[in-house]
Simulated assay, not measured.
Amino acid sequence: MTALQKSLAEFLGTFWLVFGGCGSAVISAAYPEVGIGLLGVSLAFGLTVVTMAYAIGHISGCHLNPAVTIGLWMGGRFPAQEIPVYIIAQVAGATIAAAALYLIASGNADYSLAVNGLASNRVGEHLPGGFALGSGIAIEILLTFFFLLIILGATDGRAPAGFAPLAIGLGLTLIHLISIPVTNTSVNPARSTGPALIEGGIALSQLWVFWVAPIVGAVLAGIVYKVMGGSGQEIVGTEN
């Protein structure tokens, strides 16, 4: 596959992740009569990964996430020279998705960007859970670490074939069930950047947290997986 083909796949895949995941929170979970709640939003994020893994995994690997791209590189699974083009495509896809979501949500007279937002990531008193900044940083590092362990393990050449997208999607669902009250769940700098650029304000000023913490967790996972004897060989096209 060419760099352009991979970039387009990552752009579209990350668009789907942000539009589907954040869209479920902004459009569906915001209305009590729909009633999808925290569980529904968590499943939506997981389902975006599962569906895109099957759709574009064989083209780009379906990273959809700068932390995943960097973690796979650290784990010996991805070439360093392709990192910038993947990250640019991921951030662009997330930003366009957030803009599209805002365009659609603003068609409701009761919607306000300042009040309802775009399911951006934030910490402290800016979320109902009220967890401190340190808690947000810690959970983003920890959950991204385990997310990358799941990805590295599920796509290892010695792992059972064909199940990686399910393991990764379910892993992301579990991650959201744990951390939505703490940070609105990122573990993905691109997912955080798209909504923050459209919302501005607190989401943008705290964006650094959702780049630094997930990348730290991903790098640590890549190192630990190699120490545990993880294989550099992968099942092509089934990373997240």
Rank of each mutant, 00 (worst) to 15 (best):
F15S: 04
G20R: 07
G20I: 09
C22S: 15
A25R: 00
A29I: 00
G35H: 00
V41P: 00
V50F: 00
M52G: 04
G61N: 04
G61F: 06
H63Y: 08
N65P: 05
T69D: 11
I70D: 01
L72A: 14
W73M: 11
W73N: 09
I87A: 04
G93I: 08
G93Y: 05
T95Y: 06
A98W: 07
A100D: 11
Y102S: 00
V115G: 05
G117T: 07
R122H: 12
H126Y: 12
G129P: 02
G130L: 07
A132L: 09
A154V: 09
D156M: 04
A164Y: 01
L170C: 12
G171D: 04
L172T: 01
L172K: 02
L172N: 02
T173W: 05
L174Y: 13
I175P: 01
I180M: 10
P181W: 03
S192L: 04
A196N: 06
L197C: 06
G201C: 13
Q206K: 08
W208C: 08
V212L: 10
I215Y: 05
I215E: 02
I223D: 04
Y225G: 08
V227P: 13
M228K: 12
S231D: 13
Q233G: 05
Q233I: 13
E234G: 12
I235E: 11
V236L: 13
V236Q: 10
V236F: 13
